[in-house]
Design a protein around this nucleic acid. Sequence first.
DNA 1: TAGGAAACTTGCAGAGAGTGCAAGAATGTA
DNA 2: TACATTCTTGCACTCTCTGCAAGTTTCCTA
Lengths: 211, 211
Amino acid sequence: MSLDIAQQGLRERKRIATRRAIESAALGLVVEKGLENVTVDEISHRADVSPRTFFNYFASKEAAMLGESPELPTDGSVARYAGGELGSSALEGLGELISAASQESGEDAEIHTLRFSLLRQYPQLFTLRMTAMRSFEEQLATVVAERLRHDEPALDDESRRSKAKLITLVAFGVIRHSWSCWAENEGAMSLSERMRQSFAQLPGILSAGAA
Amino acid sequence: MSLDIAQQGLRERKRIATRRAIESAALGLVVEKGLENVTVDEISHRADVSPRTFFNYFASKEAAMLGESPELPTDGSVARYAGGELGSSALEGLGELISAASQESGEDAEIHTLRFSLLRQYPQLFTLRMTAMRSFEEQLATVVAERLRHDEPALDDESRRSKAKLITLVAFGVIRHSWSCWAENEGAMSLSERMRQSFAQLPGILSAGAA
DNA sequence: TAGGAAACTTGCAGAGAGTGCAAGAATGTA
DNA sequence: TACATTCTTGCACTCTCTGCAAGTTTCCTA
């Protein structure tokens, strides 16, 4: 969390304001005109910056709509997870960890809400967001490996790395599932609730053999 | 499989030749100059077509490098899978099904090899390919739902659809894992062998609780 | 608090992707 | 052979994105 908004010097505050203005302009225009009909020129104009400046803030039009990709939570849950205190297995605990991480976003609430609704409306955007998470995936895989070092100390490094990656990628599959279910049923359930449910469903898809 | 190459009329044959020429030019140029340094103009020039024609064949530069996304196998394995004869569970069987599907490609062998080596060299390309598989994912999810209708007849439609989707997305997570391992170890193992191994590893990541 | 260092904004020029259109060439068909 | 269909191509145009250099703003310190 960055509550230090007020204590950063003019430069930094302006920078944040500009970034938000651009994000807000981008998202607003998508709502009004649809994803395909929004250009960088329009966004920059509405945000009161030059198109050139737009690209000083975001590498692409899509980046302005997606916002930053998530980071590892800073509330200590990572350490608890790695230490084996979160969840009864590396995979299950990972569900809780990610669920918690997706809560913690230092973002402007209004922008965040708008972005979520657009991610639901345009699956292509969600796909983009998932592919932008590669770095997050790798961070998580590292954490998972730590957890495994705790859970299964006998494992050699190579096997542990591989297993951690498998757990992480499976978890991302589950997240996609949660998102998909959540996006279909107009908010019948909160996303993190839905994530818990998908993770809970997971054991059932392995055990169930042919009738 | 389309063995009908020779029996299609001039027009169709030319079309296929042009498509291959473009793919080959694209892949060759990437090998020579690196992914970032290849333009549509160069590709079209080498393939002896106008840049405009390039876009009559491929929607984007990347599409020419990725090739077509996979289709459901046509050898009857889909029916066997849906009938419960392939694999001891929907998930495990899905592994075998996909593994089989990835063998069956009606493509030119040389192009196929080259493409695979580039997919390994440029993870971004692989990511693109995965996101291009959305339609394939949905086809698979439908097949998985059929399998579930066989395995668990008691399940209501809604739950079955959801479960099928979860199984499919988890399977894609496993595929990403296989690919990642395969790409790291310079061909120590064939990709389909590696896929079998990742799927086999799957049960272990659920059961293993804290020590 | 003046004045230079550092960071930011902007316009401009240009490469490159991708599209619609219409004219003309090649192919298929009767 | 004559006509319909399909394919290719050039052209003009929109849009994304980048490097550069000149001008502003903010920051820091002597």
